[in-house]
Design a protein around this nucleic acid. Sequence first.
DNA 1: CTAAAAACAGTAACAGTTCTCATTATTGTT
DNA 2: AACAATAATGAGAACTGTTACTGTTTTTAG
Lengths: 131, 131
Amino acid sequence: MNTAKKHSKKRDAILQVIRSTDCHPSAEWIYNQVKPIYPDISLGTVYRNLALFEQSGEVVAIATVDGQKRYDATAATHTHFICECCKSVIDVETPQPFAEMYKALKKEHGFKADYHSLTFYGKCDKCQISN
Amino acid sequence: MNTAKKHSKKRDAILQVIRSTDCHPSAEWIYNQVKPIYPDISLGTVYRNLALFEQSGEVVAIATVDGQKRYDATAATHTHFICECCKSVIDVETPQPFAEMYKALKKEHGFKADYHSLTFYGKCDKCQISN
DNA sequence: CTAAAAACAGTAACAGTTCTCATTATTGTT
DNA sequence: AACAATAATGAGAACTGTTACTGTTTTTAG
């Protein structure tokens, strides 16, 4: 009777692509990866499913680089390094006590923070050499 | 002989608007503020000067909210709270030792980070009440 | 096998931003 | 004060990432 989510091969492929890379891809990048498998896939399908994944929390939008949203399928919030030269988005570890900051935000401002995003910007190792 | 930057009243007004607010405005918001002062200003001028300010470092793009870039004229890197409900971007203080993270990025990955961005997402005090 | 509707391809529409070009404002020089 | 030279601008076209629409295909339950 009510809207039941149906299974879809293309949706699976899209999620598979996002999960099997650590490059934090854009919609277009994902589209180009799925295309060889399903040559008739539409870019709209990628966007539509990305929206669904975002809603369900399976995928999260971590940054906008050069006007393009970049996605990540990793569950835990973590830190990123964005190279302003080659535009790559790279995972990095941060052993930091953010829990205290969440408490402070609530206590001092009354803000209820659900998650956070920490991103460093600069030049990655490769771009420092080549430029 | 070479390209000398000329003075411009409208550029001044744009920077003034960004400096005199703490709402981390979008290009359109800035445009609407400058319009009463210079009714013939063009949105293109705002974008053009924002690009110049970004280059010179006088203004920094701190986030993209609902597809719109948001700007900030504050020199020092600081932390923001973005309310996902009313889309407001609010400054918050974070007494955190990020200097160590910069060192670790260089040591462990070879990344030369120039600056960082820490943003918390959630519901601000007002939106918690009204929703 | 059939029928209801979710998912889709293809494409048009949309929004934020950038680009183009003719005009205006600024600046150094007479 | 008038004069180039050229930086800055307004208006609007063009571009780009994303979303919406429509008719068709695929999935799924009975």
